[in-house]
């Protein structure tokens, strides 16, 4: 798929497939093209080129049948605050053709899943942030879709609610629902997703299981260095060291992908010190998806 907004090409040839019951994560920093990609997959936007198929049906902004197979949970809270949880759910269920007795029974089931049975009759504006998030997700589950799309559902959520949301998504995957999950949190992608697509600047850089992606790193180790001073200059200086594959500076730290970390560590510390960094700590970590992202893009996930 490709999608352009004026001068900016937000999606540049993204291509992926999700099997029934599979959880697929789109991992990338803010502005990578995740939301545009899933907006096309959810039928909100038309792609300039390429196509999305759901259960073999072509998905466009007008394709009613294909949209019925999709549950969509937008990044922002998309609920009506003046309506109760029951009214919110009932309204959206009717839009998906669930009415009458079936509507009442399905709304009851979803209220149970999202743990809002006791507050079902209260207006949503009286809920805590976590409860609103759960209702936001519940609306996407109403019609038992084949594919559930969640666009960064944990952004701005407290740790407790975040954990509850992640548990719910894990259960959905176990129940056989395909899940497309976008996030810029590496831990969420590692925990929830059977396969992950790494997206940056509108391009899918790589995709596969966690193990497959980490294998892309080869013999590289991830070195995490905390300190203060000219971190950006230190990253540039360290990147010139032969064994350093990629280096990136962030909020009080340096991330480096290094071949044979134990041998080259002294040189890294000297170079960082020479660039004006006062080093407070050094850690050699297990390679993870963040390291893969650094390896593929030359930038840290948080950049």
């Amino acid at each position: 798929m490709r999608k352009r907004f004026g001068e900016i090409e937000a999606v540049r040839g993204v291509n992926f497939e999700i099997a029934p019951g599979e959880s697929y994560g789109l991992l990338g920093p803010n502005g990578a093209g995740k939301t545009t990609t899933i907006s096309i997959v959810a039928g909100l936007l038309e792609a300039d080129a390429g196509e999305a198929l759901v259960e073999g049906k072509l998905l466009t902004t007008k394709s009613v049948a294909a949209k019925s197979a999709i549950g969509f949970v937008p990044q922002d809270l998309a609920i009506y605050p003046d309506l109760t949880a029951r009214e919110n759910l009932s309204f959206f269920a009717r839009l998906y053709g669930i009415s009458g007795k079936q509507n009442r029974s399905r709304v009851g089931e979803v209220l149970k899943i999202i743990g809002l049975e006791e507050r079902a009759g209260d207006q949503a504006k009286t809920y805590s942030g976590g409860m609103k998030r759960r209702l936001n997700i519940g609306i996407g589950l109403l019609h038992s879709p084949s594919l559930l799309i969640l666009d960064e559902p944990t952004v701005g959520v407290d740790p407790q609610s975040r954990n509850a949301i992640l548990e719910s998504v894990e259960q959905l995957g176990e129940q056989g629902m395909a899940v497309l999950y976008t996030t810029h949190y590496m831990e969420e992608a590692e925990r929830l997703c059977d396969r992950v697509g790494i997206i940056d600047r509108g391009e899918l850089k790589a995709e596969g299981t966690r193990a497959e992606l980490v294998a892309l790193l080869g013999e590289y180790d991830k070195v995490h260095l905390t300190g203060s001073g000219a971190l950006e200059a230190a990253a540039v200086a360290c990147a010139r060291i032969g064994a350093v594959h990629a280096a990136s500076s962030g909020d009080g730290s340096l991330e480096l992908l290094v071949e044979g970390a134990s041998a080259v560590l002294p040189e890294i510390l000297t170079t960082a010190g020479g660039a004006g960094v006062s080093v407070h700590g050094v850690e050699v970590e297990e390679p993870n998806l963040e390291a893969v992202f650094l390896h593929l893009t030359g930038r840290a996930l948080r950049d």
């Binding site: 009613v64 049948a65 969509f72 990044q75 922002d76 809270l77 998309a78 609920i79 053709g97």
Partner: peptide, 15 residues
């Protein structure tokens, strides 16, 4: 503004 339009547009209904 409230994000609910995206949800309406994702539903199987016409604009």
């Amino acid at each position: 503004r409230d994000g609910t339009l995206a949800r309406l547009l994702a539903a199987p209904i016409s604009r």
